[in-house]
Design a protein around this nucleic acid. Structure first.
Length: 445
RNA sequence: GAGGAAAUAGCUCAAUUCGGUUAGAGCAUCGGUCUGUGGCACCGAGGGCUGUGGGUUCAAGUCCCAUUUUCCUCCCCA
């Protein structure tokens, strides 16, 4: 027999956002927006569906073949639910190449889907801040992107003990593999896959993995020597005209002269899964041992626009997922308690005041930009009314009983501080506004 | 795609080695003590086909099979 009712569970790997969850999400995305805009980035958005081919060309085999939700529409078009934003950004840039003034600084906050087995820090539907700088090849833009990444985390109160930006370069990586390790293109592929595991896997397993791919002990030892070398030494071992080496060297030159040095480090194991990266690539890691996942991943892509137009527009950017980020915030205790409140005022009610008076008060508050709700429970004990307000996350209550009404006054009560102030009835909105501002100042200092 | 663990009230968990009356508690919710100041106390109430479907048995929350979901690990990645 069929089940009597439909399941209330959201689809596997997706989440419902109730007000409580939505508040947290809105809070951190609004801070991200401010940071992005402080660097001159403008918000964009694209459709959730793109032609399958937009992703097929460059996103990496695994993502497209195994993890994309795709289907044929009624017009026989092969469509995919976006698993990432960058191809859409490339398409949008290519579409308006002639009229866009370069460089373009864009960001978006959007949801994506990947058909995967959900686990810690990874779901099937996730949201992501995506930020890209297009049309500028110089290292200043690489630096800027790293700087935005660091600023984003610092805006939440994170410091260098909590995260690390790990930087490498695709071209440099290839040069080192070829010149120092003398690896063939085939070997390079297998090594790339294993490199990521080097620090995570037990040593024997790591070696076993490599040997299975036909990598000799000689080369494994060579790899170890490479990983042991600081960037400067490695740079000395490859030809001085290596573009990747120069890019990496210049980027670190800037980083060392500015405030970013404590947050960044060179890490030869950062390769990134997406196929379209060409130059500098980076990953931001949570240093909390409980949340060993990359918070961001990003890098430079030189050839993506070329999919759509015969033009060379280089871009650099990153994606910053909400699932791992929330783990990051929770893990480091960076979600302030006020986030769980909303700015709504409860108007408490008394039987010795006509209900119409409360409607008038509520309308007045709304007109002045203060959201309010009139208490509507059966039980009108004051304690009950306050409890209701607090559990609903409201920050203020207004008390206007018969006595206050006669005197032309009202009492505003800050629910979290449990303090109250008397105000003239017609200045209620202003008084709440002022008190909220005080509160904000206190939390900022 | 591979492996492991789990699923009992809205939430967190109980339910006596080996199946045995009517499946309990805390928290939360609602009502009351108590309509002028909420985090306390006391009293009371509602809420369960024990994830779903089969099977074994006189008897299943408990044992077996399947299935779904959740969590974890791997692959991969944000």
């Amino acid at each position: 027999m069929a089940e009597k009712y439909l399941s209330t569970n959201p689809y596997i790997g997706t989440r419902d956002f109730y007000p409580e969850e939505m508040r947290v999400r809105n809070w951190f995305f609004s801070i991200m927006r401010k940071v992005a805009e402080s660097y001159g980035y403008e918000e964009i958005l694209g459709p959730i569906l793109e032609p399958f081919d937009v992703f097929a060309a460059k996103s990496g085999e695994e993502i497209v073949k195994e993890q994309t939700y795709h289907f044929t529409d009624r017009g026989e078009r092969h469509m995919a639910v976006r698993p990432e934003m960058t191809p859409t950004v490339a398409r949008m840039t290519a579409a308006k190449l002639g009229e866009l003034r370069m460089p373009v600084r864009w960001y978006s906050i959007a949801n994506f889907m990947r058909y995967e087995r959900p686990q810690k820090g990874r779901l099937r539907e996730f949201w992501q801040l995506n930020l890209d700088l297009l049309g500028e090849k110089g290292l200043a833009s690489d630096y800027e992107i790293v700087s935005v990444a660091v600023s984003l985390l610092k805006a939440f109160g994170a410091d260098e003990s909590m995260f690390k930006v790990k930087i490498n370069n695709r071209r440099f990586y290839n040069d080192v593999m070829r010149e120092v390790l003398k690896a063939t293109p085939d070997e390079m592929k297998s090594i790339s896959k294993a490199v990521d595991k080097r620090s995570k896997l037990p040593r024997e397993k790591y070696e076993e993995w490599l040997k299975e791919s036909g990598i000799t002990q000689d080369k494994i030892d060579g790899l170890d020597r490479i990983f042991g070398m600081p960037l400067k030494e490695l740079l000395g071992k490859i030809p001085s005209d290596s573009a990747g080496g120069r890019e990496l060297n210049e980027l670190f030159g800037l980083i060392e002269k500015t405030g970013l040095a404590p947050y960044c480090e060179f890490d030869f194991s950062i390769v990134r899964g997406l196929d379209y990266y060409t130059g500098n690539v980076f990953e931001v890691n949570d240093l909390n041992p409980e949340n060993r996942r990359a918070l961001f991943g990003g890098g430079r892509y030189d050839n993506l626009i070329g999919l759509f137009k015969n033009a060379e527009v280089s871009g650099i950017g990153f994606g910053f997922g909400d699932v791992t980020f929330q783990n990051f915030l929770e893990g480091h205790g960076l979600i302030p308690p006020e986030v769980h409140n909303n700015e709504t005022v409860l108007i408490t009610v008394f039987d010795d005041v006509e209900y119409a008076e409360y409607i008038k008060l509520s309308d007045e508050l709304r007109e002045k930009g203060i959201g309010s709700v009139i208490y509507s429970g059966e039980n009108k004990k004051m304690g009950r009314q306050f409890q209701y307000a607090e559990s609903a996350g409201m920050d203020f209550a207004v008390i206007m009983g018969g006595d206050e009404l006669k005197a032309g006054k009202a009492i505003i009560k800050n629910l979290s501080l449990r303090e109250q102030r008397e105000t003239a009835r017609n200045e209620t909105a202003q008084a709440i506004f002022n008190w909220r501002k005080e509160k904000l100042r206190n939390t900022l200092t």
